[in-house]
Design a protein around this nucleic acid. Structure first.
Length: 826
RNA sequence: GCCGGGAUGGCGGAACUGGGAGACGCAUCGGACUUAAAAUCCGAUGGGCUUUAUGAGCCCGUGCGGGUUCGAUUCCCGCUCCCGGCACCA
């Protein structure tokens, strides 16, 4: 037999799979389904190692489960709208659409070349009109339900991307995509009311048992639920109530000031009445300008200005100064706070800065606070200096003071979330148009469903500086009002691309339908996604948005489940020389090169072998070579005896009928390997240890020298088990060897082997002997002995006798099948 | 600062419910084959020591310090360092 010609073999089987549509799947209610999904890529140009890893992991799962008899849905598509297409257009003059489709074609080819087993009949691209028609349809559904709305608000503006961003897309004050500093601008924009689902998005995280704790914690923190009290401080001479939110109402006797956010609407009124209005106005303007850049500056000095007014503490009646402070955020709570310097570090710093009094009202139980505080005490304790409440444990105080307010109508308990509504307008061209028109008579009018899709015009010129051409595209811009028929203008903003990716997993269940975003019976059969696989960078963004969409669609009666992804695997990064692969570091390894040089099977095998999927993977050229060597050994192992092997019957010999000891040992190794590999893949996704078990089996097969027919038949069983179990990892070489062994059917649906129980039972057991807790050797004993017998044999053995001579046996511990521990003393 | 995860040979990583730490792979060294090299194959490989020099035996060793246990990479207490996320959220 010829050598391992991976190029020919891989091309051959890829063609075979494609021509025969081997991985096409249909819904079949009589069979148990499994939906494996990897996060679909943005078609940026070419696959990188991270993609290869993601899709290799998904492919192993899909192929394994097909062999286990599941009806497997494993689709692929393209997250095809987005800014890089426009940037490429600016740079090279290619139309975003052409650029995108060219990349899709290239990357599809690459996915096929890595041997991924997708049902390509289900491919979707979010930029094609028959997809974004339904993205727009879903927008209208949100709109009709009052969950899509337009409002003017201070929003995040990325000056480099020339568009606004959702809060989730700002990381540490910088744009998630281009890392520019984000500015605040007051703009009129479209939002989706994700906050309507804040509570459920939070509470149902607990049901997601198949999700990594890390991701759930990140979502929990992002939603940021906190319980507290809303009450108010009143400026009596203006009859103005300043509402404040606090989680620490127990500290209210320590409130020595009140502070408003510079953007707070009441600020305007205060300015009017203040004698020093000029100074205040200047401060507010300054603060609002500065907040854009300086807000994220670390350890930055807090700034504020006294308004000249005093407001009354609802509990003590004390009048405290009202300040405007730049560290108070308009977007959270009521946009105003009570300042308690002794028990809040931020207020403490502010008070120190401006000489505001610091008054301790909570005393820790286990120690005394210093006379002069160096930092705020934020812990629990007993209330002091708090009028009638003094002496009460503060946790109890929180409850009782809230009731006290409620009884008097001065305030009540309140829950606040950090989560804000999702800003979805983008001032970009390459996205799904928001299906809305503006009519002088009727105002904001949604485009009727029958008129969808609102087509994104392709005959546009890329504009200097990169701004969207849509507002200047007369044909697109000018339209008729669907309501009154009068002249109207289209919305020229497009939707955040995260909208497109918030429902693609539903579309995959029936991508061909033109009646609805998805067919109900298909979605009912296939959803939810049983295993979702992707990078942790979407822990909040895509994964939170998709959960929101799912809950909304469930409330609309379109789907029956409230969580889209049952199990989630977040794969680690691909690292080289200790750092993430990146162009700027110059440590990128191109998957194409590896596939060309060693083949897709080798590339897949290395990626899966080098590290468990959730951990980072250190790239090693040597490691790749090692995997290639392994496949060569397997190839030789089979081809060296191919004629003999083909001539043998396919039926395995039961272990009880094998006469030779070595052959029985091999049989046992085969079935132990089946057991281990199955468990490693199925229960734990530990592909690295599954592969190492297959390497061990291969090593034993190489060392085994069959010299009669019985031995040869056990050998053949081993060879075939190896080839079959390698299939999910290295499908091409497996198919080829399988065929060479005389089989006609593809391995794609070949039943996954299960271990023969008899063949798992050891004849002899190695019993470890410990004396005083130290391992001193081992004894080979026949399996199935009673505890007493084992104990007896161990104590009689020379090894033990020699060591316990003249000593007293205190205790003997027998762990059946494993070890005997003898404790002695002089 | 808060939250989450981690630390095991020269390297990537194994070790399931507490049971001989280092599977598998890489690298290194030695050998075989070869005119030679590559490829391939065989063997050794945590550190140290004793020894009748070889059949062997002993000590140390999973970030650090304690503890529980016949026995701890695994469980408990207290630290150190590294990685990731969040960070004026009242």
């Amino acid at each position: 037999m010829e050598g391992y010609d991976f190029r020919a073999i891989e091309a051959k089987w890829q063609r075979y799979w494609e021509e025969n549509k081997i991985f096409k799947c249909d819904k079949d209610p009589s069979r148990e389904k499994f939906y494996v999904l990897e996060m679909f890529p943005y078609p940026s140009g070419a696959l990188h190692m991270g993609h290869l890893r993601n899709y290799a992991i998904g492919d192993v799962v899909a192929r394994f489960l097909r062999m286990r008899g599941y009806n497997v849905l494993h689709p692929m598509g393209w997250d095809a709208f987005g800014l890089p297409a426009e940037n490429a257009a600016l740079k090279s003059g290619v139309h975003p659409s052409d650029w995108t489709w060219r990349n899709i074609n290239h990357m599809r080819k690459q996915l096929k070349e890595m041997g991924a087993s997708y049902d390509w009949d289900r491919e979707v691209a979010t930029c094609s009109p028959d997809y974004y028609k339904w993205t727009q349809w879903l927008f209208l559904l949100f709109f009709k339900n009052g969950l899509a709305y337009k409002k003017e608000a201070p929003v995040n503006w990325c000056p480099s991307c020339k568009t606004v961003l959702a809060n989730e897309q700002v990381e540490g004050g910088r744009c998630w995509r281009c890392d520019s500093l984000v500015q605040k601008r007051k703009l009129n924009q479209w939002f989706l009311k994700i906050t309507a689902y804040a509570e459920e998005l939070l509470s149902s995280l607990e049901e997601l048992e198949g999700w990594p704790e890390k991701v759930k914690v990140m979502q929990r923190n992002w939603i940021g639920k906190s319980w507290g009290v809303e009450t108010f401080f009143e400026i009596e001479e203006l009859a103005m109530k300043i509402p404040i939110f606090t989680t620490r109402i127990d500290t209210i006797y320590g409130a020595t000031f009140v502070a408003l956010a510079p953007e707070h609407p009441l600020v305007e009124d205060l300015v009017k009445f203040s004698p020093q209005r000029e100074k205040i106005r200047a401060f507010v303007e300054e603060a609002m300008r500065e907040s854009e850049i300086e807000r994220e500056a670390l350890g930055r000095e807090k700034k504020g200005i006294f308004t000249g007014f005093y407001a009354k503490n609802p509990f003590s009646g004390e009048r405290v100064p009202v300040w405007i402070a730049d560290y108070v955020l308009m977007e959270y709570g009521t946009g105003a706070i009570m300042g308690v310097p002794a028990h809040d570090q931020r207020d403490f710093e502010f008070a120190k800065q401006y000489g505001i009094p610091i008054r301790v009202v909570i005393k820790p139980v286990d120690r005394e606070l210093p006379e002069e505080l160096e930092e705020a005490y934020e812990g629990d304790g007993v209330m002091v200096n708090s009028g009638p409440w003094s002496g009460l444990p503060n946790r109890e105080g929180i409850e009782r003071m809230a009731e006290w307010l409620k009884e008097r109508g001065l305030g009540e308990k309140k829950v606040n979330y950090r989560l804000r509504d999702w800003l979805i307008s983008r001032q970009r061209y390459w996205g799904a148009p928001i299906p809305v028109v503006y009519c002088d008579n009727c105002g904001v009018v949604p485009v009727p469903e029958e008129e969808l899709p609102v087509i994104l015009p392709l005959n546009v010129n890329v504009l200097e500086g990169g701004a969207s051409p849509l507002p200047y595209h007369d044909e697109f811009l000018n339209t008729k009002c669907p309501k009154c028929g009068g002249p109207a203008k289209r919305e020229t903003d497009t939707m955040d691309t995260f909208i497109c990716s918030s429902w693609y997993y539903l579309r995959f269940t029936s991508p061909w339908t033109d009646r609805a975003p998805f067919e109900k019976e298909d979605v009912d059969y296939w959803m939810p996604v049983d295993q979702y696989i992707g990078g942790v960078e979407h822990a909040i963004l895509h994964l939170l948005y998709s959960r929101f969409f799912t809950k909304f669609l469930a409330d609309q009666g379109l789907i029956k489940f409230r969580e889209p992804f049952k199990r989630l695997l977040t794969q680690g990064m691909v690292i080289k020389d200790g750092a993430k692969m990146s162009k700027s570091l110059g440590n990128v390894v191109d998957p194409d090169e590896i596939v060309k040089k060693f083949g897709a099977d080798t590339a897949r095998l290395f990626i899966l072998f080098a590290s468990p999927p959730e951990k980072d993977l250190e790239w090693s050229d040597r490691g790749v070579e090692g995997c290639h060597r392994f496949l060569n050994r397997v190839w030789r192992l089979v081809s060296d005896r191919i004629e003999e092997l083909r001539a043998l019957p396919n039926k395995a010999i039961p272990i009880s009928e094998i006469s030779d000891r070595k052959a029985r040992d091999l049989k046992r190794k085969i079935h132990k390997t089946i057991q281990k590999v199955t468990e490693d893949i199925k229960d734990r996704f530990h592909f690295n240890t599954a592969i190492s078990a297959l390497m061990e089996l291969s090593n034993e097969l190489i060392a085994f020298e069959p010299n009669d027919e019985e031995a040869l038949r056990v050998f053949k069983e081993g060879i075939e088990s190896l080839v079959v179990m390698l299939y999910p990892f290295t499908p091409h070489i497996s198919e080829e060897l399988w065929q060479k062994l005389g089989h006609e059917e593809t391995l794609a649906y070949h039943p996954w082997p299960s271990p023969e129980e008899d063949a798992l039972i050891e004849e002899e057991i190695n019993i470890v002997v410990q004396i005083n807790g130290k391992a001193r050797g081992s004894l080979k004993l026949p399996a199935g002995l009673s505890e007493e017998k084992i104990k007896e044999l161990v104590l009689q053995s020379d090894m033990v006798k020699k060591r316990i001579e003249g000593k007293k046996i205190e205790k003997v511990i027998v762990v059946p099948g494993k070890l005997v521990s003898v404790v002695v003393h002089d």
